[in-house]
Amino acid sequence: MARRESLAKKSAWTLVAWAIGFVMFFPIFWTGIAAFKSEADAYSLPRTWLTSPWTLENFAIVQARSNYLQYVFNTTVIAVLSTLLGLAFAIPAAWGMAFQPETKPSVNLSGKAWALILLFFFAVTAAIALSVGWRMTDNPLLGLALILLFGLPIAAWVWTRRTGDKLLWMLSTKMMPPAGALIPIYLIFNRNGLVFRQWGGVDLGDWNLIDTFAGMVPLMMLLNLPIVIWMLYTYFKEIPFEILEAARMDGAGLWQELSKVLAPMAVPGIASTLLLNVILSWNEAFWTLNLTNKNAAPLSFFISEYSSPEGQFWAKLSAASLMAIAPIMVLGWFSQRQLVRGLTFGAVK
């Protein structure tokens, strides 16, 4: 028997819920109001918001002053390209892990043996680095060799894990705090980075990825790749294996299996993943604030410019903010469930 709520009770809950919902939404609502007021009115808002005149001038001013559309373009390019690039990596990976899972490690070494191997390589790396005086400015090849010496054993360990462990490792890369990666990435992007200043006889004096799409797109892709792979993986996992087997019984080859059976069933999952990834990269604000300032600067950077303004700026800030958040907020409304799934790595569906 279903629970029957009385009309009064339902009305009461409705009232409370709407009140709280409005409180949560209020700052956005208020921004929306201020965006259509003159600067002077924006500063006297609560008293006059119904009576003061409405205007569209802020939007024109924001565009005229700072070429606002350029930032919209930059944001879109970074979000869309990084998403597509991410899918190019993630779709095969998720397919492989969901449909061709490896149930045991491909190299049979105990954890202790692996730990010893890794320690040995770390020790060798450190010994070489210390013995050459730690200065690698003029010797990029040595720097690269040391990175490989340090990294390849780790990569080998990851590569030989079974699928479940690979997935967890991918998740763990998302936990690398940006503060830890900031210095290396900044220096790799910047021509002053020690390792990249020269490459053999080639002078890399013109090397620069700061404030370029060539730098931001792959970076954004890597930031979200673990989430993208996980989300796709959980979607692919739900495609029943029996369907594939039936197709195989009917004599479908691998290509037919992929294109005729799997692809149509994977489209909704891919679309959801795409949506989530666009939202995440649209709103990213650590790397964009640190690595862009003009040419490839997205909206999150543009808005941050209002942190030290001159004169009255609330109406313009509101107008700019409204344009920056509106498209992605609407996208977000339609992707609530995917969001839960993607951001909890499939733990809550």
């Binding site: 990596f89 993630a90 095969p92 990976a93 397919w95 492989g96 892990m97 449909f99 061709q100 899972p101 490896e102 680095a129 690698m136 720097g143 040391l146 990175i147 340090f150 990294g151 780790i154 990569a155 990851v158 590569w159 690979k166 490792w169 991918m170 763990s172 890369t173 690398m176 830890g180 990666a181 210095i183 290396p184 990435i185 220096l187 790799i188 020690l194 390792v195 890597l222 790749l225 673990p226 792979i229 691998l254």
Partner: peptide, 30 residues
């Protein structure tokens, strides 16, 4: 299929390995 699966996972593993290891190695160095 198994071999193909491993091949399909390789680019993502390589990208994420580079992403997690290279900055870490450089951070330790700096």
């Amino acid at each position: 299929g198994q071999a193909l699966g491993r091949l399909a996972v390789a680019p993502a593993v390589a990208a994420l390995a580079a992403w997690s290891i290279v900055p870490l190695a450089l951070a330790i160095y700096y």
